[in-house]
Design a protein around this nucleic acid. Structure first.
Length: 595
RNA sequence: GGCCCCAUAGUUCAAGGGAUAGAAUAGCAGUUUCCUAAACUGUAGAUACAGGUUCGAGUCCUGUUGGGGCUACCA
């Protein structure tokens, strides 16, 4: 519709004022809430052509459009705004499209014939997942659904940082104080157990540093020479040499962690098409760096370390291989990116990584470009904001974190308490009930996080986030359950919904309003992909839900005698429920049949 | 020190340079003989400060203040 109007406005200006206008000057937008009309044209840009007052210009263009566009049934102008009213028949036409096309708003998977890679999660293998990872996972997962809905082939990938000093710290602490503990003997998830040893290491390390300082060593030196950190570094060297004992322990403990991660991923409802491990990709990275060094793209310092100079781009020099030849984070990321292009020939690669790594990705892209990879330009860093707690930033070293598993359980518990109190599910089996509690609890958590624009920092207040009223997941789920309930009642009453709507049918204002919102779904799906934000979907879904609740409150559906009205309202309810389900699906949120 | 990001009701979030800045929550006041009241209705409350660009600025530019991040031969 917007496209048709854009052309017609161009025509109008040409025929009225004999001027060509640039499409950028044609601003068509949704009419504001308190004004009559559906689409508004901003006429200010045309004043220099018409040489008339804004209102007169608006009326002239309005007249032209009404005569030449059959869907326009009227218009009004207020100041420089031309509000166009679309005919009810037009809206009923759109409504029929929605009803006949179950995939309304969604493109066929793979119709774009382009592959987008979405990297998310990217955990370290030395500690459990926390709230920050939850935001990361939810954004990444939702985004891949949104890309799919726009017709792209999507590959969800994860990179595990399984190599480096951090994992050696956990390993060392386990050797020292573990006494052979395993997740089984400790009765603990593997990632939790390994995380505990990481904390043990850090505590001991801190102690050693403090006593060194007390003995008169200065702080910087103490941090470097504490015996336990020396041991950890030695262990890392042995790992890089392939020392069997170290590698075996590394494999064993990582295995525990992955098992734990799998549980958390499963509980969150996210999955991956391919998991990369830094321990595999860092070697590729090193080869690339070495060959680039030969070509003179990089340079070597006297001590043998390899660097890239990005000062011409306004950035610093950056180390790529240490003087002992070992790889750093950046080296590994070069290797991973290369590997992925080799695997998938992506049209675009989106990294869902926190904004504290903005600099890292800026360097990565410039570097890949410098090395000569044409696909470097197709890399996009979706830099999401930090999740803060009301008392400030989470600090994993100080144990000030919200654990992912704990949070999920807490949300489900709250859903259970609330549901039992309301007592609407008393006739269901325990198993059925638990499934509903899970859907609600997770829905609350996911929606709370995804409704915020990824780019922005957000505050997570544990008390407020478990509120299930207002702009929340459960509010939307509740509306869905009510719609389902009405549809079930219709079946009980032997009322069959006919898939037809007479163009002569005259919906009331609220019904038209709902159709208008429903008709906006395809654009929302596109916008969400374009702006790479699930929040667009969440806010749309909330708006739709609220509108439906008002309709539901004000009008009867089943008890209407007039066949046509009742059938129309049932269709409207069905399509609203279906659209809610699609939206929530794009967010990775399930909807319950009842609650 | 240098570079980057952010600042909207008490609080948590919205607002592609466009109309009277939307919601939610907390507060106050209401709505259940009727399809699920986890609902609906009403009420009050905000663009950090100072300039500038523009017909028009929460949005763009400059400065100030306040907050966060990066600036490792950690990942």
């Amino acid at each position: 519709m917007i496209n048709i109007l854009t052309d017609k406005v161009k025509e109008a200006v040409f025929s009225l004022y004999n001027q060509q206008v640039d499409e950028k000057q044609i601003q068509l937008q949704k009419t504001g809430k308190d004004f009559a009309g559906d689409i508004t044209l901003v006429v200010f840009p045309f004043l220099r052509f018409s040489k008339k007052k804004p209102e007169e210009t608006g009326i002239e263009i309005g007249n032209y459009l009404q005569e030449n566009v059959k869907e326009i049934s009227g218009f009004n102008t207020i100041k420089g705004f031309l509000n166009l009213v679309l005919d009810k028949k037009y809206w009923i036409g759109v409504f029929r499209d929605m009803i006949t096309d179950p995939d309304f708003g969604l493109k066929k998977p793979g119709s774009e014939n382009k592959t987008i890679l979405v990297e998310f999660s990217s955990p370290n293998s030395n500690k459990p997942l926390h709230l920050g990872h939850i935001r990361n996972n939810l954004i990444g997962y939702s985004l891949s659904k949104i890309f799919e809905a726009n017709g792209y082939r999507v590959k969800k990938v994860n990179i595990v940082n399984d190599r480096g000093i951090h994992i050696c710290k956990s390993m060392l602490a386990w050797q020292k104080w573990g006494r052979g503990t395993t997740p089984e003997t400790a009765g603990k998830k593997g990632d939790k157990l390994v995380g505990d040893f990481y904390v043990k290491f850090e505590n001991e390390y801190k102690k050693q540093v403090q006593s060194l300082i007390a003995e008169g060593t200065d702080k910087d030196k103490a941090v470097r020479i504490a015996p336990i950190i020396k041991e950890a570094q030695e262990m890392l060297r042995r790992w890089e040499d392939g020392d069997k004992e170290v590698v075996d322990l590394w494999n064993r403990m990582n295995g525990w962690v992955y098992k734990g991660f799998d549980k958390t991923y499963k509980a969150l409802g996210v999955s991956f098409d391919k998991i990369y491990y830094e321990s595999d990709t860092y070697k590729t990275g090193r080869e690339i760096v070495l060959s680039a060094l030969e070509k003179g793209i990089l340079f070597k310092k006297e001590d043998g370390s390899v660097w890239v100079d990005l000062s011409e781009k306004g950035l610093d020099k950056k180390v790529l291989l240490r003087s002992d030849g070992t790889a750093v984070y950046m080296t590994q990321d070069i290797g991973t990116a290369y590997q992925r292009y080799d695997d998938f020939e992506f049209f675009r690669q989106v990294y869902v990584v926190g904004n504290e790594q903005n600099y890292h990705f800026q360097v990565l892209v410039l570097l890949l470009n410098k090395i000569g990879y044409a696909w470097a330009k197709d890399i996009y860093h979706l830099s999401y904001g930090m999740v803060e707690l009301p008392e400030g930033k989470m600090k994993s070293r100080e144990g000030k974190v919200v654990d992912a598993d704990d949070l999920i359980i807490e949300m489900i518990d709250t859903a259970r308490d609330m549901s039992e109190e309301l007592g609407k599910l008393d006739t269901y089996s325990e198993k059925q009930k638990e499934e509903i509690f899970r859907i609600i609890g997770l829905g609350a958590l996911k929606y709370f996080i995804l409704k915020v624009d990824p780019k922005k920092n957000m505050t997570f207040n544990p008390e407020e986030s478990i509120d299930f009223n207002g702009n929340t997941g459960p509010f939307i789920q509740y509306t869905y359950a009510r719609i389902k309930s009405v549809l079930r009642k219709a079946v009980e009453k032997n009322i069959e919904i006919q898939n037809e709507t007479n163009t002569g049918f005259d919906p009331n204002k609220k019904e038209i309003e709902l159709i208008k919102i429903l008709a906006g779904f395809p654009k929302i799906v596109q916008d969400a992909a374009g702006q790479m934000t699930p929040a667009v979907i969440a806010n749309y879904c909330y708006e739709l839900t609220k509108e439906f609740n008002q309709f539901y409150h004000d009008f009867s559906i089943l008890s209407v005698d007039d066949y046509e009205t009742r059938n129309f309202r049932l269709q409207l309810s069905e399509i609203t429920g279906y659209t809610i389900e699609k939206c929530m699906g794009l967010l990775g949120i399930d909807v319950p049949e009842r609650m």
